[in-house]
């Protein structure tokens, strides 16, 4: 079977898993469904011959599953009220998206045609990465040499997320139990 057939099968599986995760009432089943989606994504990365991404996705999926189970499987979280967004919020979101699309039409016109300079940058990476950076793994060469600035941004995002989490949870823990670590 060609790769595309497997990918379509996996994508259908993931869509099914997402719908189950959204619609099911029990939060533990919902977490398991989210984990199934992530693991299917990791297998899809393997089919697309991206072992780096597959490794990270697989490990992180296990980690996220443990975090979610630790954090949310408690008595008070078990039965979730189905969230009901107000009609106003929905309308505003729709108008905002339409405005963004209308404003960005000019930008779209400035872009080069889709796939026109075919694999120009990628080909340069594939041909010159080993000689220019000395790294045998081209993915790492791109992440940490050609686009190291992007990685710096990712690290900053991670730091901000951790700071926010610690701040919010620390105040809740302090007000809840009165104990300061």
């Amino acid at each position: 079977m060609p790769v595309e057939t497997w990918l379509i099968f996996l994508l259908g599986f993931m869509i099914l898993g997402s719908i189950v995760a959204l619609e099911i009432r029990d939060i533990l089943s919902s977490i398991v469904a989210v984990g199934v989606v992530g693991l299917a994504l990791s297998i899809a990365f393997l089919f697309l011959q991206a072992p780096d991404l597959a490794v990270v996705q697989f490990l992180f999926e296990i980690f996220a599953l443990i975090i979610l189970v630790c954090a949310f499987v408690r008595k008070e979280f078990h039965a979730l009220e189905p969230a009901r967004a107000s009609r106003w919020i929905f309308g505003f979101t729709l108008i905002g998206l339409a405005a963004i699309l209308a404003l960005s039409l000019k930008v779209f016109r400035l872009l080069p045609a889709f796939g026109r300079p075919l694999m120009e940058v990628s080909r340069h990476y594939l041909e010159h990465a080993a000689a220019e950076t000395g790294a045998a793994n081209v993915v790492t060469a791109v992440i940490l040499d050609y686009r190291a600035f992007d990685t710096l941004g990712e690290i900053t995002v991670l730091l901000t997320a951790i700071l926010g989490t610690l701040t919010v949870l620390r105040t809740r823990a302090r007000s809840g139990k009165g104990g300061d670590r």
């Binding site: 000395g134 790294a135 690290i155």
Partner: peptide, 27 residues
């Protein structure tokens, strides 16, 4: 080999591992 890529990898590994663990600890 590969110059500055190896130390940057170590820094990122440290950062990712510790920050994920701190999130678990906070939760």
């Amino acid at each position: 080999s590969s110059g500055v890529i190896l130390p940057l990898n170590i820094v990122i590994g440290l950062k990712v591992g510790l920050s994920l663990f701190l999130v678990v600890l906070a939760l």
